[in-house]
Structures are given as C-alpha cells and as structure tokens.
Write a protein that binds this DNA or RNA. Structure first.
Length: 568
RNA sequence: CGGGGCGUAGCGCAGUUUGGUAGCGCGCCACGUUCGGGACGUGGAGGCCCCCGGUUCAAGUCCGGGCGCCCCGACCA
C-alpha cells in the first residue's frame, strides 16, 4: 500500500479526548475514529491488525478442535427471558421493536443462541463433545464506555462454547481452551496473567480471566509476591492474621461521644482497628442485611452478593437503617433481632472486640463471638488487599491493575437445563449437556497491545499483529533515481510476500520518520539520495537504537530474515 | 444514576466576563524555494459558533429548555 493512497492519516497534535496512552496512540496514528460514545470505526490500518489477530485466534481455536460458526446479532427477547438474563443484564441489554412490535435484543453475548442451536442438533452422547466458536459483533449498552477500545458498546468478540457429556470432559475441554488462549496471547506479544475470577450471578464453578497488567486497567488484581496465586479482587481470598489470644473479659459499656467511624473509634480508644467489629448495612432486593466484619477489613460485595443470590445489592440508605431499628455509627450485632445477620469469619480471629451498643455515643468493650452474639451465616466476605497474607503460602499479597482480555467459565448445566438441551447417554438416560464458555475481546486485544507496547515516539507493534511488517520510506521522491530505486524495492518486497506500507508522499524526512515511529511497524527501510549513492538501503528495526546499511540487491532477503519469513 | 467539565473550520484551541464585521496554530489547495527527524515564502479554500425557543436595533456571547461528548464515582455474564 502506498501512503499517498491509503485512507486515513496520522494526527500531528494529540487528540483531546483520550486519557490512556493506548487510546491516544490509536487515535493519533489514525487507526480508529469514534462515531459516538463507545462506538468506533476501524480504519484500514487498524483493520489489518484486527485481521491478523483474528487469524491467530482462528488458528489456535481450530487447533483446539473448534469449529467456526456465526450466530445472529438480532435475537428474540424470549430467549433471554427463558434464561432469566433479560433481568440479569438489565439496561445493558439493547432492546428494539420490529415493525410488528415484537421485541428483539441485540446480542451482548451468545450463550442463549448457541444453547438453542445445540438443543436442536445434539441428541446423543455420540454428538459430544463439541467446541463451537464465532467472531461476531457484540452490543452492550454500557453505563459508561471509556478508555478507547477497552470498554465500548459495540465490539468484536471471539466467543466459544463447549458442550460435554461428562464433567471430566468439560475439565479437559476447558484446559484445552485455556492453553489455546495462552498461545493466542503469547503470539500477540501480550504477557498475560491468568487469574481466578468471579463467575458472576449466573456463573458456574471455575472461572479464570486473562489479564494484561496495566496501570490503566479497569480491574484490580491481587497476586502473591511469592507463589503464583493471582485472582481478581472480586474473587480474591486472603488469610486474615489472628489476633493474640486473650482471656474473654466481661462486656462493658464505654462512652464514645461523636465517634462513628472505625478509624476514629480506634484512635479514641487507643486500640488497633482490628480490635473492633464493623457493622455494614446492605439492602438485598429490598431486604435489610446486617453484616459484621473485623474493623481492619472491608466487605467484598461480590462475595456477599454471590452468597445472597440477589439481583440488586447496595448499601442501605439512612432511612432504611433507621427503619430497621439500628443506630448508624453505633449499630451492634448484640441483641439484634428480626434482621438477617451475616458475618465475615474474621470475627472469630480475635477476642474482646469493641462493637456498637446500638444507642448513640456508646460502644461496648469485650464483645466475643459466639458468647455475646450470634449470626445467621458466617463465611468469607472480606476484601483481600495489598499486604494481606496469601492464603496458599502466607507471603504478602500485592495489588495491581489489569485489562481483562479473555475470560473462561465452566458454566455447567445452567443454560442447558433452562433450554432443555439434553442428550441420551450410553445407558439411554436423558441428561442435560454440560457447558463451558470462553471469550476474547478482539478490539480490546488491539487496544491492549497498543496500551502495552509503545515508547515516547509511538506504537511498537509486535510483528504478529502489526498492520504492515515494513514501512518503506523514500526521501526526495521528486528525484528520479530515488523514486526508481524505491519503487523497485517496493515491488520486490511485495513479490516476496513482505507486507509493506510505502511512504511515497512528498513530505520531509522528519514527517515520514515520525509517522513511521508513530505507527510502529517492526521494520523501517529508507531509500534516499544518500543511500542509493552507495547502492544501499537503510534498515532500522523499530526497537533498535541505530540503523544499519544493507546493499539494495540483498535487501529483500535481509528483510525476510529479519522478519522471520513472509509476512503478508 | 450522582458529581464535575466541555460543545466555535478536518484536528487542537482562543473569543463568552463587558452583546456590535468569527479568530489563531496545525492540516488542506496552488506556485516557488528547500530536502535525513514534524522546513520556509506567497496566494487561497474551508463556519448551522451543538439544537430549539426567548430577550435585544443587534446574540458565539445574555435567559430558558433540550441534545451530545469527556472525566470521577455507582454499574460492568
């Protein structure tokens, strides 16, 4: 492709509405353009990168035994009512009416459609296992699109679904896809971390996310500084350090005027925050829930929500707290009645805690579970945090941010039971098909690559996903000898299967070199009066500090060797 | 949904306080000079000042309403 002909060009100035580095580079390099919030057009260069990513994805999915299909974006809402996910997705699900006033939705994902498809086509255990995948546009009316290609409302996604007769087969298929994903990210030049993940309201058992560690990432990842434990904050567990054992003392009131927060309370009484028990009030689908947790910890709302199995979980309003007969700031699990009580198991790791007295300006010392109060349920609902101990090895945990580029789930039979997708096993018994699902955001992957791989001059594309492998610069294109040498080299590169963007514009050297750096293809070749005088061409790798000269006649071979074979 | 910011040429922005001919830089077109890290000169094209309504002799500017975009938070199978 010639730079004089390509659609789209680089920007000289930084775009105004780009926060992350990756987003800024994508726009400045002219790769993508926003149409409306969270909706982007892909320019020819970006699309070439996307196609290369998709090729890698297809190769690895096929190698894992996948078969590619394509399912509709337009879907009847009834499918979503059948699975219960019209509610679960809520406003994120795009709805529309057709001319006959039938409600359709724009697919945010395809579990419903694929399960329906499998129901119609799978009868016997002999039809299983199956791994089906597609690369299809997804639409989600996100509350807040942001960060360029990272969170958008319309995006390309590779989604795959596996179907099995036995749990062991699911485990095996799941592992195979995980390996395929590792291969895909590695081939795209992305160092990803596989972390344990929450599977959401309608999830199954195991779930893992593939995270690119990045400052601009939306997710918080907790990982061990020593062993390989890593998890999304939503899922992460940590070991809570027990407090030194003490003889239980008797309960006594203490005046704490105006002290309503744990930090104030600890300071006022001269005790560590861990010696207090914090009370947090939630409203779970309209029902109040009283949560107790050791004062040095925070509630992990995802864990709590999963346990309560509710649609909506939120902090209670002041009115709701009052209506439940509680005194905000001084609420107590002691003597509590008529409200569901949940506690984090951290309250057993210590004794003689300070808790609220359920009357203003007063707390109680020496509260001990279960001597002084009981709860309905006790489980791990604590948020892991930097500095906590790893539950596997005891070393300190670290917190980092990450971009989720892939997510895999063992769904089990949640969907197949809802849709009646069953098969007959060897014994002639009808069973629900066991299911797994696996996603990779294609556009997000491109965004992640750029976010991750750049320097102060621009993008540094890994060769595997670079729009072109080679940027051929001709300087002084008005000179016939330069023009001829550059054109000839361009032809030879193309004939050799090396995909090349040929900068034949009448621009100065600075403009061309800066664009070459900004676009970040792996190899830059320069033909100029200076080089052809010696019968040479200048080679510069995007990551190399200095260029080197290569004879013109050996240039194609040298490029091929550098790039590791044909690249088109 | 709560909080904040912004809508003026393709892009980045000034002008709005105090109403009076719509500007700057980059980019774009033409010609000339330049030619290895975002050159220079001369000439030019390009505007629904987000939209609707109001006030006024006069509105980019003031008033009312709406829409859009961005950021923080909530939310995010």
């Amino acid at each position: 492709m010639r730079a004089t002909q390509i659609f789209g060009k680089t920007l000289r100035e930084d775009p105004a509405e780009a926060d992350s580095i990756g987003h800024r580079l994508l726009i400045k390099a002219g790769l993508v353009q926003q149409l409306t919030a969270g909706v982007y057009s892909y320019m020819p260069l970006a699309l070439r990168a996307i196609h290369k990513i998709e090729k890698i994805v297809r190769e690895e999915m096929d190698a894992a035994g996948g078969q590619e299909v394509q399912m509709p974006v337009l879907q009847p809402v009834e499918l979503w009512r059948a699975s219960g996910r019209e509610q679960a997705f809520g406003q994120t699900l795009f709805h529309l009416l057709d001319r006959r006033e039938r409600t359709l939705v724009l697919g945010p994902t395809h579990e419903e459609v694929i399960t329906d498809l499998v129901r119609r086509n799978v009868r016997s255990y002999r039809d299983l296992p199956l791994l089906l995948y597609q690369i299809q546009t997804k639409l989600r009316d996100e509350a807040r699109p942001r960060a360029g290609l990272i969170r958008v409302r319309e995006f390309g996604m590779k989604d795959a679904y596996s179907f099995h007769a036995q749990p062991a087969s699911l485990d095996e298929g799941y592992d195979r896809v995980v390996q395929a994903y590792k291969n895909i990210f590695q081939r795209c030049g992305l160092p990803v971390l596989v972390v344990e993940a929450d599977s959401g309201a309608i999830g199954g058992k195991d779930s893992q996310e593939f995270m690119l560690i990045a400052e601009s990432g939306e997710d918080e990842v907790i990982r061990c500084s020593s062993c390989d434990y890593a998890a999304n904050l939503e899922k992460a567990k940590s070991r809570t350090r027990p407090l030194p054992a003490e003889e239980p003392r008797s309960l006594e009131e203490v005046a704490t005027p105006g002290i309503t927060s744990i930090p104030d309370l600890a300071r006022f009484l001269g005790i560590p925050e861990a010696k207090t028990v914090k009370a947090v009030f939630y409203t779970c689908d309209g029902q109040p829930v009283f949560v107790s947790i050791r004062g040095d910890l925070e509630v992990n709302e995802t864990k709590l929500k999963n346990f309560l199995k509710c649609q909506e979980l939120r902090l209670s309003t002041e009115e709701e707290v009052r209506a439940a007969g509680l005194t905000a700031g001084y609420a107590s699990p002691i003597g509590l009645k008529g409200i569901r009580r949940i506690a984090d198991d951290s309250i057993t790791l210590g004794s003689n805690f300070v808790v609220g007295a359920n009357k203003p300006d007063t707390h109680l010392r020496n509260a001990n579970y279960p001597r002084d109060f009981q709860v309905d349920d006790m489980l791990d609902i604590a948020k892991a945090a930097e500095g906590h101990e790893c539950q596997r090895c005891g070393h300190p945990l670290r917190s980092t941010r990450g971009i989720e580029v892939g997510h895999v789930f063992k769904l089990g039979t949640v969907f197949t039971e809802a849709f009646g997708a069953t098969f007959l096993d060897k014994d002639g018994v009808e069973r629900p098909v066991i299911m797994g699902c696996y996603g990779i955001g294609i556009g997000r992957l491109l965004g992640a690559v750029v976010e991750q791989s750049h320097d102060d001059k621009g993008i540094v594309f890994p060769a595997s996903v670079s729009p072109y492998s080679t940027y051929l610069v001709a300087l002084n294109v008005d000179r016939q000898d330069v023009r001829r040498a550059a054109e000839e080299l361009y032809d030879r590169l193309q004939a050799a299967g090396i995909d090349t963007l040929y900068d034949d514009r009448e621009e100065t050297a600075g403009v061309k070199f800066n664009d070459a750096d900004l676009l970040g293809f792996p190899l830059r070749l320069t033909v100029s009066p200076r080089t052809i005088r010696e019968g040479k061409v200048e080679f510069k790798s995007r990551t190399a500090a200095k260029p080197q000269m290569v004879p013109l006649e050996g240039a194609v071979e040298a490029a091929r060797a550098l790039l590791g074979g044909p690249t088109a």
